[in-house]
Amino acid sequence: MTERDIFFVANEVNELGGVGRWQAQLAKLLAERGHRVTIAGIAPANHPMDLGEDPPFRTVTLYARRPPGRPRPRRLLGAADPAVRRHDAHMRTAADRLTALFRAARPGAMIIVTQVWAMEWVALADTTGHRIIGMTHESFETARKSSRFARVKKYYQDADRLLALTQEDADRWVGEGMNNVGFMPNPLPIVPDAPSPRTEKVVASIGRLSHEKGVDLLLDAWAEAAPKQPGWTLRLYGRGEAEAELRQQCAQLGLDDSVDFAGQTDDVPGALRASSVFVQSSRGEGFPLVLLEAMACGVPCVAFDCAPGVREIVGHDRDGLLARPGNTTELARHLVRLMSDEALRDAMGDEALRSVQRFEPDAITRRWEELFDFLDR
C-alpha cells in the first residue's frame, strides 16, 4: 500500500450532519492506515460537531466567517465592477492557502472535494501533480432540482473522477455527458457492541427536524398507524427549524400521548438499541448513514424509497420495508406490519444485521485505496 497525502476540501471542516460525519470517519480511517490526512474547510461550521480531543488528521479553515456570494456585476462595468474584483481577489487569496498546502504534499497526493461549493476554490488553486476526486453526496434527482446541478457539471467535468453514491446515480450523470463518473458507497458509521433486543414498543426516527427530512409526513403516517397498535411510541430524535410547527401538528393530530420529541442525541447506538423499528420519512436523501446505523443495530427499517441510496441499503421485504415517496398511507401500513409481528421484526432485524456488513469500514477504505492506485497509474 502506498502511503499518500490526502486532502479533503469541504464547505466546512466539522459541520454537524451526514456529510460531516462521513468526512470525519473516512479521514480517520485513512489516517489509521498510514496516510497523511488534512481536512480543509472553506468556512467555519454553523453547527459544529466534536471531532474528538486529538483527531489523527490536520484541519484548516480558509475564512474566519462565511464569505458572501459573488455579487452581480453592474451592467456597464461587468467584471471590472470594483465589488466583483474585491470578491474575486479575496477568493484567490483563500485559494492561495490551498495552493500552499498542495505544493507541500508528496507526489501522488489525492484531493477529495467533498462538496461542489468548495470546488470553486480548488479550481483557483494550483493542483499540479495531484489527482482531484469530486463528490456529490446527494441523489442525482435531488441535485437536478437545485443550483448544484449546473455547478457539478461545470466544476467537476475535468476532475480525475466524479463519485456518486450509487451505480444508478452514476449512470444518470453519465447520461448528462460526464465521462469521468464512478460511485462509492458510504462506510458503516458504527459497529455496536450489541444489537437491539427489539423488546421495546418504540419506533425511532433520527434526523434534523426540517422540511427535507419529512417529519410532517411521518406524523401523518403515525396518525394512521398508532390507533392500530396501542402502546407503541414514536420517538423523534433531533432538533431543527421545523420543531415548533411539528409539535403543533402533533397536537392537532391528537398524538401527544404517543409521540416523544426526544431532542438531539449524542448516543445514536443507544437510541437505536432502545427501539424495535426505525423509520425514515425524508423527501430526499443521498446514502443515509442513519439507515446503516439502524441496520447495524439489528433494527428493521421502514423508509420512503426517495433515492437510489435508500434502496441500495434497504432490501424491500428482506431486511426492511420501502414505501413510495410521500405515500403516508403506505408508510403507515408498513409500520403497522412490523409493529404487529414480533417474528417478522426479528427476522428482518437479523437479516439487516447480516446484509449491512457489505458496507464494513475496512472494505470501503480498501476500495478508496484501490481508486487512488488506479488514478495514480
Rank of each mutant, 00 (worst) to 15 (best):
V279I: 11
D171F: 03
R367S: 09
E224N: 02
L255D: 08
G52A: 02
D54G: 05
G326Q: 13
E369W: 02
E312Y: 12
R33H: 08
P308S: 13
S147Y: 13
T93M: 09
P189Y: 03
R354K: 14
T329Y: 13
P269R: 00
R86N: 14
E243S: 15
D160V: 11
K228D: 04
V268R: 03
I364N: 07
M178I: 12
R36V: 00
P230I: 02
S196V: 05
A194G: 11
D220F: 11
S146I: 02
V310R: 08
H334V: 13
A204V: 12
D266T: 02
E293G: 10
E200V: 11
S281H: 08
I42N: 04
G52N: 07
P67K: 02
E369N: 06
T61Q: 02
S340K: 09
I39T: 03
E53M: 12
E360D: 12
P185K: 10
A24P: 01
F8P: 04
I133T: 07
K145T: 13
F261V: 14
F304I: 03
A296T: 10
G320L: 08
V84E: 01
F261I: 15
M119I: 07
R198K: 13
I206Q: 01
M49L: 13
T265S: 00
P68N: 09
F7T: 05
R85Y: 08
A43L: 08
Q157A: 11
R161A: 15
A294T: 07
A118W: 11
R239M: 12
H90L: 04
L335M: 04
A352H: 05
L353G: 14
A271S: 09
D317F: 11
A343V: 14
L162F: 15
R247D: 11
I132T: 08
S276I: 10
D171H: 01
V9D: 05
T142Q: 15
G41H: 03
A294S: 10
Q23H: 08
A242C: 06
P187Y: 11
V356G: 04
P107I: 14
V13Q: 07
V310T: 04
D81S: 08
D373C: 00
P55W: 10
L353C: 03
Q23N: 08
A343H: 07
R337G: 08
M91F: 07
E369Y: 07
P55R: 05
D373T: 09
H211P: 04
A225W: 10
A194L: 09
R58Q: 15
P308W: 15
A225K: 04
A94P: 13
A274I: 01
G18C: 00
A100P: 04
E15A: 10
G349R: 01
R239P: 00
M110E: 15
I112S: 14
A225T: 05
L338C: 10
G108V: 07
P300C: 08
V37Q: 06
F8T: 02
